[in-house]
Amino acid sequence: MKSGFRLSFWLFLAPVLLWLFLLIVLPHIDLLLLSFRGENDMGDLVWTIDNYKNFFIEPIYWYTFVRTALYAIVTTLCTFVLALPVSFYIVKLARPRTRGFLTVLLLLPFWVSELVRVYGWMILLRESGVLNYFLLKTGLVQQPVEMLYNDVTMIMGLVYTSMLFMVVPLISAMESLDDSLIEAASDLEASRFTILRTIIIPHCKPGITSGAIVVFMLALGNYLTPNLMGGKNSLWFTEQIYNQFIASFNWNQGAAFGFLLLVLSSCIIWVGLKLSRHRLGEVAA
């Protein structure tokens, strides 16, 4: 009986392991090897750590990474601040029927591709766009205002794209929050803000952490939104990887950047978890 169980266990596990190995582990090993290769002055391929050294020596590279990481953190914070009241409204205040409707409404933008979503914003915000048209019509501005191609717009775009990934874990965390806890806090003379700080946020902490990790990784790994909405100054780290692979034909450098992104973003998340005193296992559960 026991050996039968073991056999079927391995039988079912094998495809998963195979899939993991073939599609995830192998290509990464290949990329890792690639990242340690480079040309010497003679144009021959040799083993080297220059690709990694370049990242720290060349200011543009690490500057771009720091910038990308900071903006990803800002995006995560903004998304959280926006998603909290939205999820609270959906879970605690809206009627059951409105609730489903609102959730669908949140989901709706994800039925089209990210490209379409970003172009939608561009149509709205561009100098000759819909918003400017109304501003001019109502006489609020005399000259059309360019609202695209700056960092604020880019962050707004990123927040919009990642909203859902924060709202969903928050909703499921909040659903388990007993209304009477909120009422009890209110009864004990707590203001709304105190209730938020001492009851709701601590209760939703696992949801917040998992939402924050997803949003942070999505923002960090995003390519389209910073590229299209951010405009002139917004060199994103993923764009740099793309440029290395595609424009400069420098796969070795691109692979090194890819691994640096993986390692550095994991470090940031690790620090974040330490700061919020969480373990990754708790979040996943």
Binding site: D178, S180, L181, E183, A184, A185, S186, D187, L188, E189, A190, S191, T198, I199, P202, H203
Partner: peptide, 20 residues
Amino acid sequence: VPPNKRPVNLVFQHLALFPM
């Protein structure tokens, strides 16, 4: 007068102790 300003306190049916 909102609940947090009333000189009354309520023991809830399921107690509503803060688990955190």
